[in-house]
Amino acid sequence: MTLHLPSHHPLHQALRQALTQCRTLVVEGPDGIGRGALIAELARRGFLVRRASGPLHHVDPTQPYRELLAAPGRLAVDGSLVHELVYGPLRRGRSRVTWIQALDFAEAVEERDGALLHVTGETDGTEAVEGLGRALRTLGQHVPVITLDARGIGDPVPEPARTPTGNQAHPQGN
């Protein structure tokens, strides 16, 4: 399932729901797309922001991501194996991550009540942008994918409505 957010309305109903219902959000986007404002907003909303450190493990490139997904609480991962699926072939002629590993990763994100946030916008890397889109459409068969335009990410983000008890209200309709 892929949900698209128009650039004129960056906080579409689907993203509001993701912020209140997802424990895990994996932020993906092509090189050159600013994700900083979105990452900062996720941290402000109580997500622990993490990025796999160092190069991918040569035997098991999924290891750092499995470790990240094992963390308790709400988690936002800045970039993931999807980046390697796209940029590996463009930079080195092959990916160090197999599709089976990427699909396992997508299922692990979904099992952790998560979604992939596909950040789009203006960029020069057309081949990478197209590859990222194809990869996320494929992974979207296993985990929700929310697409949003980076040009609207810096806009103010309203807080979800709260009930008198302090719990977040569930959006209705649409």
Rank of each mutant, 00 (worst) to 15 (best):
G133H: 10
G131Y: 12
R74W: 03
T163A: 10
L11Q: 06
R45A: 06
Q21D: 12
R35T: 05
G121V: 02
A14K: 01
R51E: 11
R51L: 04
A18Y: 10
R151C: 02
H118Q: 10
R134W: 09
H57T: 05
S7Q: 14
V26R: 06
R151I: 10
L69D: 07
E159F: 07
L132W: 02
R112M: 00
V129S: 02
G34W: 02
A135K: 04
V145N: 02
H58P: 13
R151H: 06
V49F: 12
D31H: 11
S95R: 01
H57C: 13
R35I: 03
D78W: 03
R137I: 00
D104H: 10
V77P: 05
A169F: 08
H9G: 01
R74S: 02
E130W: 12
A135Y: 08
V59D: 13
G54R: 06
V26S: 08
P158A: 04
A40S: 15
E67Q: 12
R91W: 11
Q101V: 09
G125D: 15
E127H: 01
A71H: 14
V86P: 03
A18M: 13
Q168P: 00
S80M: 11
V157C: 11
A76D: 13
E127K: 09
A102M: 14
L48C: 10
L42N: 10
A14G: 09
P64F: 11
A102N: 13
V143E: 02
R45Q: 14
T2P: 09
L117Q: 05
I153V: 11
E67A: 11
V26Q: 09
L19G: 04
G88E: 06
E28L: 12
G133W: 01
T24K: 09
G121Y: 03
H57I: 02
H57G: 07
A43Q: 14
H4C: 08
L15I: 13
P89M: 05
E28Y: 13
A76C: 15
R94P: 00
E110H: 12
L90M: 11
P55K: 10
W99I: 03
R16S: 08
V97K: 07
L75W: 04
P10C: 10
G73L: 05
H170G: 00
P158L: 06
S7A: 15
D104G: 01
A71I: 03
L3G: 04
L85F: 05
